[in-house]
Structures are given as C-alpha cells and as structure tokens.
Amino acid sequence: MPLVKNGAPAEDIFTAVADDAALPDGPVLVSAERFLKEADTLVARNDEIGVLWPNARDVAELKPYLSRLSVVALTFPKFRDGRAYSQARLLRERYGFKGELRAVGNVLRDQALMMARAGFDAFAFEKAADAEAFNKALATYSHFYQPTGDGRATARDVRVAHAGPAPVEG
C-alpha cells in the first residue's frame, strides 16, 4: 500500500502487530484493544507507537495517550463510510493531537482532499496511481466554503481580504 505523508511518498516504518504476537523492535502499530489493555507498557517503550482505531469507537478514549502516540490510523472500511472524518476532526481540533493521522482502508484519491481538510496528513492508498496523483488531487480546489481546523482560507477569509465591487447581476 503506497503511503503518502505530508504530500510525498513515504516508507511505512510502522509494523502492524497482531494482538497475540510478541512486539518486535522498532515502531509498531497495534489494535485499539491491545493498545488500551497494554497502554502503559506500550507508551513506555523507546520505540514509536501507533494505534489502529476503528471508526465505531469513541476517539475520546485516546485522550490520555495522545501526546505519546506517534500515529493514529483511522479506518475507512469502505470509502463511503465517513465516520473517520469526524473522528479526525475531533482528534485534531478538540483533543489537539499533533502526531501522524493516517487514513487506512479503502483510501482513494477522490476523497484525499476531504481527508486532508479533516486533519489527515498520511494516506495509505490502495492504488499506486492514486498515490502519484495525490498532490494534483489536493490542488483540485483553491478555496473552501467552510472552516475546519486545517487552516485553509475560507470563502469568508477571501472575501474579507479582497472586498470586491458591489454585487451586480451577471
């Protein structure tokens, strides 16, 4: 799965570890259950830790650990299942998560910009072509109507900055 991180192809240094498997050295990605069960040991390790968080589980449960988590991977079982957009915004905007927010699952280029606006900064694409087209996909729109926590300028910002001429019927 080609990973794009901060707008560029990236190597996935995290090893996904099954719940009953021993932890290898190096950065690991574990399930929500395992993470919550072994959180204290996991965050105490010297290696980076990431958690794969299901989209039906409240991300507030992660609050106590966010400063020590390197990656939260949110899932799109189908690209049409949009719960992770809300989870991403909550993690970024309400709980202040600063680490990598990774979209995993049925991740496609046509949703990449929406994901970025919701706060994702890493994308595990299913297709190589989508990974290659990532920056083009993110440039699809130059401005946006509504504010999210992504800092992109909204219509209102643009309008205030360039107070244009009075409206005329056109």
């Binding site: 949009g82 929406m114 919701a118 946006f144 109507y145 999210t148």
Partner: peptide, 12 residues
C-alpha cells in the same frame, strides 16, 4: 455555503 463540499459530512 457551509454545506457545500463539507469535508466531514460528504459521506454520511
């Protein structure tokens, strides 16, 4: 304006 291409609410 708020709802047009709302990134959080496009796959409800």
């Amino acid at each position: 304006q708020w709802s047009t291409l709302h990134p959080e609410f496009t796959y409800l």
